[in-house]
């Protein structure tokens, strides 16, 4: 059965999920669907949005909320024909975006298992911000090319 989205739902997504990584794919799918309807480029739909949003969600779930399923993650997406703005809010205390972003391409970091998430988010989005607003918020902005 296909659920028809209202005009507001076609433009916006506003959901809370428990801190469980199994919810990530479903959220990514819902955001990609909205961006596809706004004719975002195929590369954005297949690479930039899925990977950057997955990183933001997994950071919120695993680091911000410490994988505690009693805590929730609030996801908001606002998409129009010119850009996508995503906000991922967790219940953590936040972090310093610049200090925590490492370069995984250096010889000393290349063989590390972790440390690529924030780097990818920043390379795949046009703008990444981190601020506190009723929780720890990461805002990702991608202009439709």
């Amino acid at each position: 059965m296909t659920t028809r989205l209202t005009p507001v739902e076609q433009r916006q997504l506003d959901v809370r999920i428990p801190s469980d990584v199994q919810y990530i794919e479903s959220i990514v799918e819902q955001v990609v669907l909205r961006c596809a309807a706004r004719s975002f480029p195929r590369r954005h739909l297949a690479l930039n949005i899925p990977v950057a949003l997955t990183e933001a969600l997994s950071n919120a779930i695993l680091r911000g909320n410490h994988d505690d399923t009693t805590r929730s993650v609030h996801v908001r997406a606002d998409v129009d024909s010119s850009r996508l703005v995503l906000e991922v809010r967790d219940e953590g205390t936040g972090f310093d975006l610049d200090a925590c972003t490492e370069d995984p391409t250096t010889p000393e970091n290349l063989l590390r298992e972790d440390g690529r998430g924030l780097f990818l988010m920043r390379r795949l989005m046009d703008h990444v911000e981190r601020f506190t607003d009723g929780g720890n918020v990461v805002r990702l902005t991608l202009r439709r090319a």
Binding site: S58, G117, F119
Partner: peptide
């Protein structure tokens, strides 16, 4: 479909 940093990390770990 797509791979995130955790997926890449597992491949690095296994390769090592």
């Amino acid at each position: 479909g797509y791979i995130d940093s955790s997926g890449l990390g597992v491949l690095v770990s296994l390769a090592k």
